[in-house]
């Protein structure tokens, strides 16, 4: 396959670098999708509405993780490695499950 600018040796490096970046981003996105599917499969059927969930991390969450999770819903409590969240939409839950630093997702009755 002929790449744009493939005849110009000086532009081969930027084109290759851009393709590598795109490939890495695509691989990242695919890995996140597969991870989300795997973690959500363990959860069973995801409700169509907002729900409450326990998000289990591989470590005690830092401020970064709390801020990221707050974008997905209402963060209620943090206990060691587990974050309790309410009002999480299915799309946001899928986003959380796709993060590689999230070990697992489980339903929570909100109490």
């Amino acid at each position: 396959m002929r790449l744009p600018f493939s005849d110009a040796p000086s532009l081969r490096v930027p084109v290759t670098a851009t393709l590598v970046v795109i490939a890495v981003l695509a691989a990242w996105w695919m890995a996140a999708t597969v991870a989300a599917d795997r973690k959500l499969a363990a959860l069973g059927a995801v409700p169509a509405d907002r729900g409450s969930y326990r998000i289990v991390l591989a470590f005690a969450p830092e401020r970064f993780h709390q801020l990221r999770l707050q974008e997905a819903g209402r963060l209620v409590e943090v206990r060691e490695r587990t974050v309790y969240m309410m009002d999480v939409t299915p799309a946001a839950l899928r986003g959380i499950a796709g993060e590689y630093w999230v070990d697992g997702v489980a339903s929570w009755d909100g109490r």
Partner: peptide
Amino acid sequence: LAIDLCYLRPLERATIQR
């Protein structure tokens, strides 16, 4: 370093130095 090596320097070579 990566931006300079992969983008800026080749762009300069393809234009100014050429």
